[in-house]
Simulated scan of single mutants.
Amino acid sequence: MIAKVADPILVAIVALVGTIVGGLVAGCVQLVVAKMSRSTQVEVLQLQATQEADRVWRDHRRQIYADFLTATTTTMDLIEVYTQAPSDTDTDTESAIPDVHTDSGFPDVQEVRKAMHEFTRAYSDLSLVAGAEMRAVALRVMEMINDSYVAALEGHETPERPADLSHNVVVEAMQKELGLHQAASTPVPSPR
């Protein structure tokens, strides 16, 4: 009779121990999987955050580069038109800045100065975010525009734009800096 009573108790104890051990194993497996899943989620979130920050930074730099190109084109065009404007030489011959007839459709000296100020601001912004190669190209553009600006204000002919500072060269340097690659067979049209 003891064997009959011990048998169901033994079975119950073995079943209870098996349930406890099985629960502990399942709980440990769940904890390990949850921890791995959480660390994977954290890594994915960190990767997504890094990619988003890179995209925002690249977009910000792209906008600064676009502003620089716009300011360069606007300033060069205004300087070019300004130098073609007839000056009023009958009033004050000692003035270093020619008096431009604004009613003739030509820009006056204040418009050229404003464009130069905007160009300088765009150059400064670009200098803060650009890499070394792009800063070197931008510096050369700045020097060229400064030379043209001074020549225009002094009434001299503006110097020609060097071929190595063409619009295409500047755009290609920007694309290289931004990691954008354009096919060599598709040239970027010049704004002129």
Score class of each variant (00 low, 15 high):
158 T>Q: 11
84 Q>T: 09
50 T>C: 08
87 S>Q: 08
54 D>A: 14
2 I>D: 12
179 G>V: 04
43 E>L: 09
93 T>C: 04
146 N>F: 06
99 D>Q: 10
138 A>I: 00
90 D>Y: 08
19 T>G: 15
91 T>K: 08
1 M>I: 08
68 F>L: 00
126 L>Q: 00
25 V>G: 07
112 V>S: 00
52 E>K: 12
47 L>H: 12
35 K>T: 14
42 V>G: 03
66 A>W: 06
67 D>F: 01
125 D>T: 04
130 A>C: 02
125 D>K: 08
30 Q>K: 08
105 G>K: 02
54 D>P: 03
155 G>F: 03
122 A>T: 01
103 D>A: 09
149 Y>H: 04
180 L>F: 14
156 H>M: 10
62 R>V: 07
44 V>R: 07
89 T>L: 10
161 R>E: 05
96 A>Y: 07
142 M>A: 11
93 T>H: 06
178 L>I: 06
35 K>V: 14
76 M>W: 06
44 V>M: 11
188 V>G: 02
49 A>Q: 09
177 E>K: 04
88 D>H: 05
86 P>H: 02
45 L>G: 10
43 E>D: 14
112 V>K: 00
30 Q>G: 09
157 E>Y: 05
99 D>N: 10
3 A>I: 11
43 E>Q: 13
77 D>T: 11
95 S>M: 03
57 W>I: 10
65 Y>H: 05
29 V>I: 14
133 E>D: 12
96 A>S: 09
192 R>C: 05
77 D>E: 11
72 T>Y: 04
116 M>T: 05
88 D>C: 05
59 D>R: 09
187 P>M: 03
121 R>Y: 12
188 V>R: 05
63 Q>A: 12
146 N>D: 14
111 E>C: 04
105 G>T: 00
26 A>M: 11
44 V>T: 10
125 D>A: 11
46 Q>M: 10
75 T>E: 00
46 Q>L: 10
48 Q>G: 05
51 Q>N: 14
100 V>D: 00
109 V>D: 15
152 A>N: 00
176 K>P: 02
73 T>H: 12
150 V>E: 06
61 R>Y: 03
134 M>C: 06
129 V>T: 04
11 V>D: 15
142 M>C: 06
163 A>W: 05
87 S>A: 15
118 E>C: 06
94 E>Q: 11
16 L>K: 07
151 A>S: 06
67 D>S: 13
106 F>D: 01
166 S>G: 10
66 A>S: 13
75 T>W: 00
82 Y>S: 01
150 V>Y: 04
30 Q>I: 12
94 E>I: 12
143 E>R: 12
170 V>T: 05
164 D>F: 03
94 E>C: 06
73 T>C: 12
86 P>A: 02
40 T>W: 11
89 T>D: 15
21 V>L: 15
113 R>P: 02
42 V>C: 04
122 A>L: 02
14 V>I: 13
28 C>I: 14
153 L>C: 05
156 H>K: 13
29 V>D: 07
169 V>K: 07
104 S>H: 07
78 L>D: 01
90 D>C: 06
112 V>G: 00
163 A>N: 09
121 R>Q: 12
105 G>Q: 01
11 V>C: 13
129 V>M: 02
